[in-house]
Amino acid sequence: MSLIDETLAVLSQAITGKPQQLRQALCCVLAGGHLLIEDVPGMGKTTLAHGLAKVMGLNWRRIQFTSDLLPADILGVSVFDRNRSAFHFQPGPVFTQLLLADEINRATPRTQSALLEAMEEGQVSVEGESRPLPQPFFVIATRNPVTQSGTFPLPESQLDRFLMRVQLGYPDPAAEKAMLVGEAGRVVLDTLKQVMTAENLQKLQDKVQHIQATDRLLDYLQRLVSATREGDRFECGLSPRAALGLLSASRAWAFMAGRDYVLPEDIQAVFPAVAGHRLQSRRGGGISNLLAEVDVTGAE
């Protein structure tokens, strides 16, 4: 059993009946991107985040975002050390390998933005000093749909920094019943086996970056991305960062399928998760229509 399959098998003990979402989440981690899990409360977002952290064997912290959370609560503060008569930096919860930002959109945009630099640069600047974050560093954020009360919309710049967005959705009846019969996910969490280590994960991430993507494949990817920018289908098209992310995610997807090259189908598989939170469709079905319309082979 390969490491990937094992990881997925272990994870599915905690989150039952959601193999596709688990694959996406793992794909995002392998691609080295940050993950956004979005759904209404009680769907197992936090459980998934916990599970991931646990299985990967990463040290992790969790911040419960609230409306009065301040940037310093995330990044850390300098406190005066009376003994040494000097300021001493007290690192915040962001200094960890896996940061679980729970209900990220309950905090104010200002606090949300405090995560920006950490997520993009892998470092934190406090009081003019850049402090590197440990490697690997991920943010797994959960978010409630914006329509729920007490939420602030995430700024687009922040949304763009999440590689993928996973929506869990209601479990199917069989999975739900199994859950009701068995133990609650949270309890199972504690018993989850650690499958990977941080070094392990970094090696896998390294391999993912070396998955082959041929010219023809990049052409297709590029056609897809520019198609989001043309016409009036979307409010605004995908950014180059999104294009890079799409490629990484496709590589990770191909890797998880045991291939050493990327196929157009890999791009199509990750495209909704990568593009979904970055594109605002003006009409319904924007993304699935786009995938159906952009020619894969580019013969015409």
Binding site: E265, A292, V294, D295
Partner: peptide, 20 residues
């Protein structure tokens, strides 16, 4: 090959990858 298949009644859709 795709054209031949189309003549046999299975036309490749634009957004359909080779594997699908």
């Amino acid at each position: 090959f795709c054209r031949r298949m189309a003549r046999k009644g299975i036309k490749r859709e634009r957004g359909e990858g080779p594997k699908a």
